[in-house]
Design a protein around this nucleic acid. Structure first.
Lengths: 158, 158
DNA sequence: ACTTTTTAGTTGACGCGTCAACTAGTCTTG
DNA sequence: CAAGACTAGTTGACGCGTCAACTAAAAAGT
């Protein structure tokens, strides 16, 4: 804030005060950063990374279950999985109890990619969160959650 | 198959704890909401709305100045302005001191569109922020700013 | 004055996110 | 067990955001 002249502080105020705008800008930057790190470290897309994170936490899983857990887009996920199968990053096993569904899981190759990305992604996560005190972290997540909730309300789920 | 059990709380934790993911999801929802409201109320895109907000706060202004203030994308802004000119929502006046630049400003028609959107957008903004106490609001903006700053650091501007 | 560097703005390419339509398998309920 | 409703997953269309290349004008360096 050192070099900001008074004009800027005023003029910036309006748009900068709108959370949609702030969130949008932050999103763009975080996104770009994550993509860059993933590309450099492991040749994964952010989507693919997220599939892996989900696999890691939940183990062998079906796409629809991933969607339930993450709210990712159906189509987007479907394509990501397809490309991961093509590249041999995950394996697919059709579910016997439901012929529509299939379980996906790490392949050794996929795990290797994931493990190459992991330290970088973890370091990033820690650096990001490290810029906030535990209190600030709680407040941030709290606020994000409340905003999520109010969007729910507004978008008809009331 | 899996329904609500305590496990879910745990399994959700991993991805949900990552701010990039949280921010990304919230961004998507806020974005969709804003676009819907704008479309319904005034047939403006979010980008066009943002141009108007900037015009309102800063008055007649050049695109490059908008970029300086908002960090919007050059190309995106250029196209938005073009479409707004085509639709007669803004006027353009070439800058005499710099032949490359041009000032843009509201036309009556543009102002009308803006004014139609405004109450809805304001109501939304207030409802969003209204879900947070003043303290929480401060904490949220504080956290967003710190995250912005740490991304700056990480992305080489150090 | 003239060459180089910076800045304003435009354009094209391309991938991602979003939405809706669609197929196919499964569940429900009479 | 048949008809409709629901769920899993795929595909296509399309707009938006992102990045880089490009033109043209202005500033800065020599």
């Amino acid at each position: 804030m050192a070099k900001d002249d008074p004009e800027q502080t005023v003029t910036r105020a309006h748009l900068q005060q709108m959370i949609t705008f702030r969130v949008s800008r932050l999103h763009a930057r975080l996104n770009a950063q994550a993509n860059r790190i993933l590309k450099e470290s492991s040749d994964l897309s952010l989507m693919q990374w997220r599939v892996f994170v989900t696999l890691e936490t939940m183990g062998k899983i079906t796409p629809s279950e991933i969607i339930r857990q993450t709210n990712l887009d159906k189509g987007q996920l479907s394509r990501a999985i397809k490309s991961m199968l093509d590249r041999g990053l995950i394996s697919s096993e059709t579910c016997e109890s439901d012929q529509r569904a299939h379980y996906i899981d790490f392949t050794p190759k996929g795990l290797e990619h994931f493990n190459r990305a992991r330290p970088h992604m973890r370091a990033r996560q820690e650096r990001l969160m490290g810029s906030l005190t535990p209190d600030e972290q709680r407040e941030l997540f709290n606020a994000l959650q409340k905003l999520d909730a109010v969007v729910d309300e507004m978008d008809g789920k009331e």
